[in-house]
Amino acid sequence: MSGWVVGEVTKLTRWTDRTFSLCVDAEVEPFRAGQYNRLRLMVDGELVARPYSYVNPPGTRPLEFYLITVPGGPLSNRLIELAPGDTVELMPRSSGLFTLDAIPDAVDLWLLATGTGLGPFLSMLGTDEPWQRFGSIRLVHSVRHANELAYQETIAGFTLRDPERFRYVQMISREDRPGLLRARIPSALDDGQLEALAGLEIGADHSQVMICGSPDMVRDTQAVLRARGLQRLRRGMPGQVTVENYW
């Protein structure tokens, strides 16, 4: 398979005025949870492509992507206007190394996301791998406002799958809501609030931490974890932290 393939939009879900999910039926090569594809459209006479991670687990269709519009962004503001039956181009082969098979086994797995960085973690949790490899799983999703906490039904399904091992922590940073922690992930890690809510401590000897989201969050969270002895996992070097910058 070479070049680009044409996919048909089957569904578009608007979560907020800026965040949305796009489902596309297309023939692409098998991918690993955590990888991404590229979506491409003709915009003002020019082909524009951007990378987006899969939300759906491998081996399922349609393909699903969780996106946010970028002010002035030529592609995202076109994608949010698509409707079932419209077409969009994709690459036949997926890319990316932000996958579970790239990290070592550990007692517990932490998945820390901001905004649409939640997407690849939903793909991972939709497979058997994390449930077979880790004794405890914590999914943390931080957004600015409570209405941005998407995919609640999907995440509730993970809780039902194994309520003893899985816990979901919701965080918001720009408003107060009963029952929700108002803080950024780095500060909540630094002062212990996050681990208290999750009912689990992060430690270099038993944890693997995957971080996906805004570059500021990724940078600041790594700094907090580094101060506690957790190092970034790199090829040929042991570590406990794996990162992906994702808007």
Rank of each mutant, 00 (worst) to 15 (best):
R138L: 13
V107M: 06
P104H: 02
D101V: 06
Q132I: 13
V140P: 02
S94K: 03
I103L: 05
V140F: 06
A102C: 03
S123C: 01
E148K: 08
S142R: 09
A150W: 14
F134S: 11
L139I: 06
G119T: 01
L139A: 05
L118C: 06
G119A: 14
S142I: 08
R133D: 11
H141E: 07
R144S: 13
W131K: 05
A146I: 05
V143M: 07
T116K: 10
E153I: 10
G157Y: 02
L125V: 02
S123D: 00
P120I: 13
E129R: 01
L97M: 13
W110H: 12
F98V: 00
I103G: 03
T99E: 01
L97I: 11
Y151L: 03
Q132R: 15
G126D: 06
L97S: 13
H141Y: 05
T114I: 10
G126K: 07
L149M: 05
E148Y: 05
R144C: 09
F98W: 03
V140M: 05
D108Y: 11
I137F: 03
R133W: 04
L109F: 07
S142E: 11
G117H: 14
S95Q: 07
L100K: 04
Q132K: 14
M124V: 06
L149V: 11
Q132N: 14
L139C: 04
G115F: 05
I155L: 10
M124K: 00
A113F: 05
N147F: 12
T154P: 00
H145Q: 15
L97T: 12
H141W: 09
D108W: 12
L109C: 07
L112Y: 15
D128N: 07
Q152F: 01
M124T: 03
D108I: 12
H141M: 06
P104L: 03
L125M: 09
D128G: 02
G157R: 10
L112H: 13
I137R: 08
T114D: 11
T116V: 15
S142A: 14
D108H: 13
L122W: 00
T127C: 10
T116H: 09
E129A: 03
Q132G: 09
Y151K: 03
P104E: 08
P104G: 04
G117Y: 15
I103P: 02
A113T: 02
E148M: 11
M124R: 01
T127V: 12
R144K: 12
F98T: 00
I103V: 14
L125N: 01
N147W: 12
L100F: 09
W131G: 02
D101Q: 08
W110Q: 09
P120F: 14
G117N: 12
S94V: 03
V107R: 12
F134Q: 15
G119H: 01
A106F: 09
A150P: 14
L100Y: 12
V107D: 13
G115D: 14
F121A: 07
Y151W: 13
Q152L: 15
I103N: 04
T127R: 04
G126S: 06
A146R: 12
